[in-house]
Design a binder for these strands. Structure first.
Lengths: 187, 187
DNA sequence: ACCTGAACACCGTTCAAGT
DNA sequence: ACCTGAACACCGTTCAAGT
């Protein structure tokens, strides 16, 4: 038996991962929750409040998941494989995509509070990737490592977007294989 | 003095590159054109018709641009630099992005006729990139070359998305530099 | 051939009213 | 504390009516 507020957030996340922030309708969301659309506003006064809460929680969950990986192993290749698997899982879940990736496209129509959480999500990912890259090559230049981490983050997001547009998970795998083969993602 | 239909398409393209297909409003578009929203429907009966026309034209224009590059040089490094510059130009234009990249995210809410044009746009890009990769390495396995072309297309789209989310063109340049340094994009 | 105003069911938001 | 119905200005779409 979940809190109404938690139910709203869980269902809203799934909607945004499929339809974006612009595609999130309070009426549809309310229907899914089983209350009226005006009641959503009791828990989240505006759509901006809901969007910011969703993006913040998304980042917190990502951080927990990624730190969980680091607690289990310090083998860079394993860690990167698990990282890629997280993005694959979104596609497996009815061809959904990273919520903040979708929001990145919607940047111009995002309230400022949502924009800053989307930025924070990217920061969490890049910081974790940089940490893993340092495990693989501790002697590397820190600035170059950070750049490389951002490149991996961006490339995996692009692979997810390309695969989503065709509804083809095999394409995601194929693109990631190329990233590994060319050396963007270290094996 | 442009055709009304052409004016609609030009202004609509700029809107979709900034706000997506979902963010394209007939009322806003009509205001920009200088007619009433009901009049847009005379030229494009439904939003799906307009969206499909936009995506098709976008692909035709891309093909013309890319073939123009090939007519001027057959140096792979130069061609790839020009290809990257096309995506950079969208960001330079008020932080806009590739129209079909945005539409890829909106996949679930796209009419079928628009979806197929988005797919066709990707095909045009991948075919051109594969052609350039063959210039660089004619002996390479054709299947691997095609995979590599798709990886480059996806990665550049991801770089554009990441840079857009921060409104930071320097980040786009930095990510592309990493793609070149790691060997994903051949120099 | 091209445009318009008015209507329809939708959207986020507000608010007075319920329990 | 939590929910609701009704209203507001918005959305794409339709259509009869204008020129």
């Amino acid at each position: 038996m979940l809190d109404t507020r938690e139910t709203i957030m869980t269902l809203a996340r799934a909607i945004v991962q499929a339809h974006g922030y612009q595609g999130l309708s309070f009426r549809d969301l309310a229907k899914a929750v089983g209350i009226k659309s005006a009641s959503i506003h009791y828990h989240f006064p505006t759509k901006a409040d809901l969007g910011a809460a969703l993006a913040r929680r998304y980042g917190e969950d990502a951080r927990a998941t990624l730190d969980g990986f680091l607690a289990e192993t310090s083998d860079p290749a394993t860690l990167l494989r698990r990282y890629v698997a997280v993005f694959r899982r979104a596609l497996e879940n009815d061809n959904r995509m990273c919520m903040c990736g979708f929001m990145a496209a919607e940047h111009d129509d995002l309230p400022e509070a949502v924009k800053s959480e989307v930025r924070a999500f990217a920061d969490i990912n890049v910081a974790w990737l940089a940490q893993v890259l340092r495990l693989a090559d501790p002697a590397a230049d820190p600035t170059a490592t950070e750049k490389r981490a951002f490149a991996i983050f961006a490339a995996i997001g692009g692979a997810q977007l390309a695969a989503r547009s065709r509804g083809d998970i095999a394409l995601f795998d194929s693109i990631v294989e190329s990233y590994c083969a060319t050396g963007l993602i270290p094996a």
